[in-house]
Nucleic acid binder design. Structure first.
Lengths: 351, 351
DNA sequence: AATTGGCACTCATTTGGATAGAGTGCTAAC
DNA sequence: GTTAGCACTCTATCCAAATGAGTGCCAATT
């Protein structure tokens, strides 16, 4: 019994070795790989017939499959999964490449948006796939200052500045015109009362004051509070998501089902879905790989997503990664995503 | 002599009639149209042989060409040109359709950006091609107000509001920290001095004051002026360009040269080139049609662009249109673009 | 017991006609 | 000026045969 199990595990080890070789080959050439090819590929000196036996086993285990009787084998999703989880040998990037990434991210300029753009361009450029970077608005984005400017026709321009220097603006409709003085007064009140508070706190206080004092409170103030409330609400669910290099995906034959490609592109311009997808990996540690089919996401059939969260000051603020065909060169893409996440965090740290 | 010339012109008129029928047919079916088909298509009761003679003439004139000996004829670029310039019979939209467009543009919300987005979505939706709307920043965008907020590390957030309620903000680097009071003082000065002036005037005055008084002028003020100058510069060359429905273009077989499609999509995400292209039509009156090849623009081979400038308060503020395959239904697209331009102008008028 | 060579078999891809069909150009007749 | 007829040209389609890559299985070998 013990013997059997040992023998089994030995077989499995070799089988895994073959699986690895097969997938690596398939990733390189994109074509079903047969026993003869595989025999040459692995270092071991075995005949095609032997390989065939092993491949039959792998097929039984559901790790590979053949498109038709007389073609080679291609990895299945579960095959990829095993490959990714335990067979992969990631090549570390050499210093030169790391430096190149660092340099490209440095140039971005001060605007944090620019850096994200650089990052996604970088990812897409290096991997020849689509690069994507998200920045999740952290909720600790505190209230700093608000200004109101009268426009014509009972409209007021409200400008809200948060502690970290982001500016939101919005046009508000009021039911009468306000003078400059009235608006300044309202703004002053809000600024004095709430400067430095968390957005959520501001929102709640505003609502509360609205309820407490609806009747006798100064009319301007009421309006102002409503405005501020609206503003804060609006500035809440805003997340950045910048994508680059979508068109790289057109090169890949396996995604060339036109309908497929189209849906993918629509999702890219819509962004919402992509954002939602990547947000799942916010809490994950390090590089995560996600094979499209695994989640029944029709959209991502034939695709894989390689992501890593990145953090500034110990805190995760976003996730970045690449989207490409499942048949991608993970051994190279993984370290690229990994390093980029680390460097992006570092670059953002010095604001 | 006179007889000959009259006879010639008669022939030409009929030839044009055939050209029109041929192009309309080709636009419908996308396939070379032969003499037999064309004979049935035109009202006139002529035999295919006659049609063949005329088609041979058309080919001599360079208006049509045949892909190979035994295929029908397809229009050449110059053929399209003649069709568009003088043969086209545009169908006016019925009231119902006009209403639909108006309604869809109304819902957009107040933000002018939203309306542009609706417009381009509308265009792409109705025509099943790519819709694009540009908004050229009109230079009469007057200075209204500026605010400075101190950030950490010698950085200052400047917020510039223009008369029509647009908000620009930017982080400026200074060579020392400023207090809140200093910044307020500077802002007050600028606001008093320049409120209501044209941006360009502001810019020049600022530069002038900088030169006049570089030595003895209050340090804060100098900084402030520089800031304002930078800001104004920055807010200048900003143009909006919103594109929708790019992926519609994937449907068209004639554009399906992957390389072609890819370049097109890259141009769409880059936007710069598209913007430049459309700006050419700012001064044109009414609907303009542009056939890709005509300008040697490799990018637009096989494409046509149908555009119209739109105006609010008698002044042209942008251009909108659709991009699609040269083989598109001009007779329908033209009125759609035309009406949309008019309605968009009207909708924007009431801010 | 694992490995191997041999062999029959399967199936996708390629190849090379042969054929049908669409359409033209030309000529002669109306 | 128009038309019918005819020869000719090309493309697209279909089919059959050949090719070749690869498998599965069995019997022989180590």
């Amino acid at each position: 019994m013990a013997n059997k199990s040992v023998s089994d595990s030995v077989v499995n080890e070799r089988a895994q070795h073959f699986l690895k070789a097969l997938i690596e080959r398939y990733i390189r050439d994109g074509q079903p790989v047969g026993s003869r090819t595989l025999a040459k590929d692995t270092g071991l000196d075995l005949s095609p017939a032997t390989i065939r036996n092993v491949m039959a086993d792998l097929e039984d285990m559901g790790l590979v499959s053949s498109p038709h009787t007389s073609a080679g084998r291609i990895p299945t999703i579960t095959g990829y999964r095993m490959f990714i989880d335990s067979l992969l040998t990631v090549q570390n990037l050499n210093n030169q490449e790391v430096e190149r990434i660092r340099k490209e991210l440095m140039v971005g300029g001060d605007e944090s948006g620019d850096v994200l753009k650089s990052a996604s361009k970088l990812l897409s450029g290096v991997t020849h796939m689509a690069g994507v970077v998200t920045l999740t608005r952290r909720d600790k984005n505190n209230f700093r200052q608000i200004e109101f400017l009268p426009l014509s026709d009972r409209r007021v321009l409200a400008i809200l500045v948060t502690e970290d220097g982001e500016v939101h603006n919005r046009i508000l409709h009021t039911h009468r015109d306000f003078t400059r003085a009235e608006l300044d007064q309202a703004a002053n009140f809000l600024n004095k009362s709430f400067a430095g508070y968390e957005m959520e706190v501001v929102r709640q206080r505003v609502l509360q004051q609205l309820n407490d004092a609806r009747d006798h409170f100064d009319q301007v103030m009421t309006q102002a509070l409503t405005m501020a409330g609206e503003m804060v609400n609006a500035s809440e669910n805003k997340e950045d998501c910048v994508i680059a290099g979508q068109t790289n995906l057109m090169e890949f034959a396996e995604l060339s089902g036109l309908e497929q490609l189209r849906k993918l592109f629509d999702a890219f311009t819509e962004k919402r879905e992509i954002l939602h997808l990547l947000d799942q990996f916010l809490d994950a540690e390090g590089v995560q790989i996600f094979i499209g089919e695994e989640s029944g996401y029709q959209l991502l059939n034939g695709c894989s997503v390689v992501t890593a969260p990145y953090q500034v000051n110990e805190e995760v603020v976003g996730v970045l990664g690449v989207i490409g065909p499942t048949r991608m060169n993970y051994e190279r893409v993984i370290p690229v995503v990994d390093i980029t996440a680390k460097i992006l965090g570092a670059v953002l740290k010095k604001h």
